[in-house]
């Protein structure tokens, strides 16, 4: 087929989606170019703004470094313990407060106002109670995650349709059966959202505590790069940590949406 047979028409305007995609690519490319230009310009300290090539090489180095994975495992253990302890206590407290209007009015203001205070300030006390090992980091993570989970559980319990509870009562369900056959399925969406918030805050609390006083964990690795001024490795570790936190957040968000939150 010859090209001459194709009629020459005015090119159609780009669709909105294509323009959005192009703009996204342009923004990313511009940011990378600006970064690289700053790194090579000599206007800033080379160590503070290292070249992207150097950061990517450091990222590769971190990913094949067994030290990174052993420290990641420690942080994962601390965060896992934190979310387990903070989650179970938050769930229990939220369940009690959600079921009693009187207790909710008495104690929920404490949760509401203490929730947004910075939990890292409790770290000196937690060191006294749990020592300087992983226990105090897990405790800080648990304390951080307790508040969003308790508040989310209490609110979710209050939103359960009373008809479901009356149906349960007509079947003579025990308290435990009512909890896991009616409450848990009905609140799983908002509860997953509460755990999502709790997990994010538990990661922050645990890693911050590691940067303050620790000899292991991802927070310790990050603060080590600061003390040795290894900026490329610091960028690599921060990028990996941010990626893990954002991916976990996205996964739990998707799960919460699937549960109807």
């Amino acid at each position: 087929m010859s090209t001459a047979s194709i009629p020459l028409t005015k090119s159609a305007p780009l669709s909105f989606e294509t323009r959005v995609r192009s703009l996204k690519l342009a923004i990313v490319a511009s940011l990378l170019l600006i970064w690289e230009a700053m790194a090579r310009s000599g206007l800033l300290f080379e160590d503070v703004v290292p070249s992207i090539v150097v950061v990517v090489a450091a990222l590769g180095g971190v990913l094949v470094d067994p030290v990174f994975y052993s420290n990641l495992a420690i942080t994962a253990w601390e965060v896992g313990t934190a979310i387990l302890v903070g989650g179970v206590t938050g769930l229990a407290v939220g369940f009690v407060l959600g079921n009693s209007r009187f207790l909710s009015r008495a104690y929920e203001p404490f949760l509401y106002y203490l929730g947004p205070t910075p939990k890292i300030i409790f770290f000196p006390l937690l060191i006294m109670w749990f020592g300087i090992g992983p226990g105090s980091k897990a405790a800080l993570g648990a304390l951080s995650s307790f508040f969003p989970i308790a508040i989310a559980t209490a609110a979710a319990i209050r939103s359960v349709d009373p008809i479901l509870l009356r149906v349960g009562a007509s079947f003579r369900l025990s308290r435990w059966q009512t909890f896991y056959k009616i409450f848990l399925p009905a609140i799983r969406g908002p509860l997953t959202n509460g755990f999502r918030l709790g997990l994010g805050i538990a990661i922050i609390g645990t890693v911050l505590a590691e940067t303050k006083l620790s000899n292991q964990g991802i927070g310790y690795l990050i603060i080590q790069t600061y003390t040795t001024f290894n900026m490329a490795r610091m960028y690599a570790l921060l990028l990996l940590l941010f990626a893990i936190a954002i991916l976990l957040n996205a996964a739990l968000s998707r799960l919460a949406r699937r549960f109807g939150a």
């Binding site: 923004i27 600061y226 921060l238």
Partner: peptide, 29 residues
């Protein structure tokens, strides 16, 4: 509208990022 559509999800992801963990970087800068 175009810039909003291109960046709104990134801004929402930025809101979820644990920014305080980057404090050693801020100390250097």
């Amino acid at each position: 509208r175009l810039v909003r559509a291109a960046t709104e999800n990134w801004i929402a992801a930025f809101a979820a990022a644990p920014l305080i963990l980057a404090y050693p970087l801020f100390l250097v800068i």
